[in-house]
């Protein structure tokens, strides 16, 4: 087990190194002079040149690359072109709302998805299964921003139950969380159903029924416990994907998170900020994948790593 953790941690670090290298070189492929972008078109060539020098842009690319890593290792992600404040500060402020949104979205997805999936498996080949699976298919297909706009149209503008945008009270969470989480509840419902269907065909379920246990006990104690293993791992993996989805939902609901910051930064050509956001979200992604990998062993004692 210890060996496995070390090996996986090492692999994660390698991937992170690869991601940051890729991002570094991609961002340096962006046409145009960052110093010029920062100072605007009316700046004199002398000012641009002195800024280039102070930013180290005249150094060889490899030197810049190593300096970038040195800085990242010390937690220095550079300064925003737009605000000239440290990128790290801005991200620290914005990461909270995004994490809240992501976890709330996944929580909702798990609650709805697991219940729907279990329902579909328990009532296999009945109209209940058909309806649940059809709704799940729709859930996978409706874009999160379309769903969000429809919710806004009906619940915020027509019924006036919810605020249209912003962040603060629990009401602000309702529409963004549903828009973000609905897709994943559909995915989780499909996985839960197929996992449960497989498990309900196992011998030990037949034994449990044969010894006279009630259907409820068979379902919850015997089937669900085992059926949830793939669901939990996949939910973990999708939590990482969901982080990417916040970009659109945050823009729609003016949610003060990282995703919206990423879009704003691209439109403003704020490259240090873009670089840092992608690095932060990808790190979250790699970290979650690492934890999911470890969780296999805890959830299913039959899995051995060596």
């Amino acid at each position: 087990m210890k060996h496995f953790i070390i090996r996986r941690a090492f692999a994660s670090v390698i991937v992170l190194w690869g991601v940051s290298t890729l991002i570094f070189f991609t961002v340096h492929m962006i046409p145009g002079d960052p110093a010029r972008v920062m100072l605007g078109v009316r700046a004199t060539p002398e000012r641009v040149e002195s800024l280039r020098e102070s930013m180290g842009l005249d150094d060889p690319l490899l030197t810049q690359y190593f300096r970038f890593f040195g800085n990242v290792a010390r937690g220095d992600l550079g300064r925003s072109f737009r605000t000239n404040r440290p990128v790290g500060h801005e991200i620290a402020v914005r990461i909270g709302p995004t994490v809240q949104l992501a976890f709330a979205g996944m929580g909702l997805a798990l609650i709805i998805g697991v219940s729907a999936g279990v329902l579909a498996a328990a009532f296999r080949d009945t109209w209940i299964e058909t309806v649940v699976m059809m709704v799940a298919m729709i859930g996978i297909s409706v874009p999160n921003f379309v769903l969000g706009m429809l919710l806004m149209l009906y619940f915020s503008l027509h019924l006036r139950w919810l605020p249209t945008m912003g962040h603060g009270t629990w009401q602000h969470f309702v529409a963004p969380v549903i828009s973000l989480g609905f897709l994943y509840s559909a995915i989780i419902a499909r996985i839960t159903r197929s996992s449960m269907v497989e498990i309900l065909g196992m011998d030990y379920i037949r034994s449990a029924r044969a010894k006279g246990l009630s259907e409820r006990v068979v379902m919850t104690k015997h089937a669900l416990k085992n059926g949830l293993i793939p669901v939990v791992t996949i939910a973990g993996l999708y939590l990482a994907v969901l982080l990417g989805g916040t970009v659109v939902v945050e823009t729609l609901f003016s949610w003060p998170g990282l995703g919206r910051l990423a879009v704003e930064s691209i439109l403003a050509r704020d490259y240090p900020m873009i670089q840092a956001i992608i690095l932060v979200i990808s790190s979250g992604f790699v970290l979650i994948n690492f934890l999911v990998d470890l969780s296999y062993g805890f959830l299913d004692p039959r899995i051995r790593y060596d």
């Binding site: 991937v15 992170l16 690869g18 991601v19 890729l22 991002i23 991609t26 961002v27 990482a240 994907v241 982080l243 990417g244 989805g245 970009v247 659109v248 990423a262 879009v263 691209i266 873009i274 992608i278 979200i281 990808s282 992604f285 790699v286 994948n289």
Partner: peptide, 11 residues
């Protein structure tokens, strides 16, 4: 290991 839409945004 970069979410698809984020990779697209980077590009």
């Amino acid at each position: 290991s970069i979410p698809g839409i984020l990779l697209a945004i980077t590009i």
